[in-house]
Amino acid sequence: MSDIRQSTAAVIYNPIKVDVDVLRKEIVRAAADAGWNEPIWLETTAEDAGQGMVEEAKQADVDLVIAAGGDGTVRAVAEGLRGSQIPLALLPSGTGNLLARNLDLTLNDMPGSVTAAFTGKDRPIDLGVIDIEREDGTRERNVFVVMAGMGIDAKMIKNTDDDLKKRAGWLAYLGAIVKSLRDPAELHLRYRLDEGRTKRATAHTVIIGNCGSLPANILLLPEAVVDDGQFDILLIRPGGLLGWIRVWAKIAWVNGIVRRTKSGRALAGEQKDDGDLKYRTGKRFVARLSRAEEIELDGDGFGKAAAFNAWIEPGALTVRVPGDDR
């Protein structure tokens, strides 16, 4: 009788974001309970947020990758796992937990999240892929699981004090928002959506979203679905202070609260353009800016982009989520 191969998980963790001793105790327990081998432990570094660790995990022929860290760790691990069919399990850590929020995962139950990693089911979701062109003409490719953005949101991230963010979480962004809103510069871009004609636009912010829920009950893209095979795109251009108040009311109140219930969605009606917010959907979004602008992916700054080419890859990432009996 041949031996039955035991499964093995790789844990890719950011030591700054997690309590390694607590994490190790919980994961070793859950792996043993599930009849799995001792996990492989791979620590991220300042130079490598997770992509290199994924390659090590692949070479070890693991059956599961567990990401324990912030949004940057999750994004980097997802980039490494793109198209591999190896499931990714999330252990929410840090301030944002963007993908976990959009998958409706529990954010504050480490033992439960660990157990679900070994006993849950697999769910294919889409990945955003983006080629960023720099001012000098060089290009680099990255992925994002939640959204990419230029304009106010990218400037906000650049203006946020990292030390304050560690202490105060998302409250640290408030001062950065105020500083960013004082910047009168707008984005001037030529863009093409799918196979449509090239258009011109002026906006304060451009968001390309795979899913749309953010911390603080903000639902930025209310109709975005993580596995529908398309982007939801938002162009924001409010007119003055009243315009920003309208934008905030629509995003924080109408989207963030009213649209979260079935009756509320019926009351709010269809998502529609107005003078401040313009929504689009598509599979590919190509844009060139009049000047290089800050760009962010999943809440992390990625420097300045003179142009970009973003597209959706349906089902390119497999995520381990709790089973139906949770």
Rank of each mutant, 00 (worst) to 15 (best):
K283H: 13
R288N: 08
V286C: 10
N309E: 15
E293S: 10
A292R: 11
E313L: 13
D274P: 09
R288M: 05
G282Q: 04
E293W: 03
E294Q: 14
Q271N: 11
I295F: 10
E293V: 08
K262E: 14
D274Q: 05
G301A: 15
V286T: 14
D273G: 01
L277V: 01
G269L: 07
N309R: 13
D300H: 02
G299R: 08
L267K: 14
W311K: 11
Q271W: 02
A287N: 03
L289K: 06
G303K: 11
K272R: 15
E296D: 11
G275L: 04
A266Y: 01
G269D: 09
R288K: 13
D300P: 07
Y279I: 00
I312F: 02
G269R: 05
L277A: 01
N309Y: 10
G269K: 06
I295L: 14
R288V: 12
S263R: 11
A268D: 06
K272G: 02
A310F: 02
A268L: 04
T281I: 10
D273Y: 00
F308L: 14
R284Y: 04
A268S: 06
G269T: 08
R265L: 04
T281D: 07
Q271L: 15
S290R: 14
R291T: 14
G299Y: 05
K262W: 03
E296M: 10
R265Q: 14
A307P: 08
P314R: 07
G303R: 09
K262C: 00
K278Q: 15
L289R: 04
D273M: 03
A266C: 02
G264Q: 02
K304I: 03
G282W: 03
G264T: 00
E293M: 11
F308R: 07
G275T: 08
E313Q: 13
S263Q: 13
E294L: 13
F302Y: 15
G264F: 00
L289E: 10
K262D: 12
E296P: 05
E293L: 02
R280Q: 14
R265G: 05
F285L: 09
E294I: 03
D276Y: 00
E296S: 07
I312L: 13
A266D: 08
G264P: 04
V286F: 05
A266P: 00
G282L: 04
I312W: 03
A287R: 02
K278T: 14
Q271I: 15
A310D: 05
F302R: 15
K262S: 10
A305Y: 08
E296F: 04
A292S: 15
K304H: 14
G264W: 00
L297G: 08
G301M: 06
G264H: 01
L297S: 07
D273E: 05
G301Y: 02
G299E: 12
K283S: 13
I312V: 15
R280S: 09
R265I: 01
K283Y: 01
D298Y: 08
D276K: 00
L297N: 06
A292F: 06
R288G: 09
S263I: 12
F285N: 06
N309P: 07
D273I: 01
P314V: 11
R288A: 13
D300S: 08
S263P: 00
D298V: 07
L297R: 06
